[in-house]
Design a protein around this nucleic acid. Structure first.
Ligand code: FES
Ligand code: FES
Lengths: 154, 154
DNA sequence: TATAATTCAGACTCTTTTATCTTTAATTTA
DNA sequence: TAAATTAAAGATAAAAGAGTCTGAATTATA
């Protein structure tokens, strides 16, 4: 997998929170967990990291939860990916050779670097504002990942 | 990482064997291990799997080792990737949602599926024959991955 | 036939990722 | 102030991936 589970959960949760904009101040983690069918405690850890990376704000107590720390148009998908998976996942040679570059390319370099640039570009330019609009219009989905398993800790 | 370590080692080893074409019949795994700085026992397991998938032939005893089971132009990188990482790594939604497709795309579907097609296409069309030629001409490299660590089991 | 070279096979360890559970601290509301 | 709600923090467990080790089986060759 390109992205870790931690990262995909973090992206989905952030997108979900973005769609809740205006409905309330903070979104409880427990509700995100239930809506997206992600383990509550696992999700808590992920959102903690997003909080320390200044992507989310959190608040305890009744009516607490998490909210976006910045306006949605100032948060790109890449921000979230870097916070959770680090900024090294797109670096380096796909074959593990040291020093990926044109001077000493590996057999896959040409095709890989081309794809990689496309991915990086789209992840960097895609921000939460435009995406949450499309989600709200029903053009994109962020759920439907129910795997039939029941989790105890929702 | 897109490809597992098992898979990258398998690709490098196969490319190395392809460049040895003509020099000898079978290439000993121990020599591949030394040349590419990959743990001998780990590599042995990887090549066993390539043997059962009919990508390699193996031979025991003195002058034994592995060789390509088919001519290099009949083995694509995708053959090796599928044998080692399975054919599911390019399937499915990058966000883990069920049923990746145009009818119910996730927010990343557009950019991801585009890059994915490029990668799949290049891995499928790239075969060992053309690559080993370029490696032998010094245009592409498959080694240089020495990480400074000394492995005990070369 | 003895010996050395080599793959084959399985069990085992170590590390990282993923997930769960429990306790603590902060906050609101009544 | 008491009770309810919620995130924070930490300990632990389960699963998968990566790597190691030992011994057995096979083969060429002297
Ligand atoms: S050198 Fe291998 S991907 Fe660039
Ligand atoms: S639906 Fe997510 S990548 Fe296709």
């Amino acid at each position: 997998m390109l992205l870790s589970k931690t990262c995909t959960y973090g992206l989905l949760a952030t997108l979900f929170v973005a769609t809740q904009k205006g409905k309330r101040d903070y979104v409880p983690i427990r509700e995100i967990s239930r809506q997206l069918n992600i383990s509550f405690h696992f999700l808590t850890k992920i959102l903690q990291r997003l909080t320390t990376h200044n992507i989310m704000n959190s608040h305890r107590g009744p009516n607490g939860g998490v909210r976006l720390a910045r306006t949605p148009d100032q948060i790109s998908l890449m921000d979230i990916i870097e916070a959770l998976d680090g900024n090294k996942i797109f670096e380096g040679c796909v074959l593990g050779l040291p020093g990926c570059g044109e001077t000493a390319p590996c057999p896959l370099h040409q095709s890989w670097s081309q794809s990689r640039d496309i991915i990086i570009h789209s992840f960097t330019t895609a921000n939460l504002a435009t995406m949450s609009h499309e989600i709200q219009k029903g053009m994109l989905r962020i759920s439907g990942m129910d795997d039939g398993l029941t989790r105890k800790d929702h």
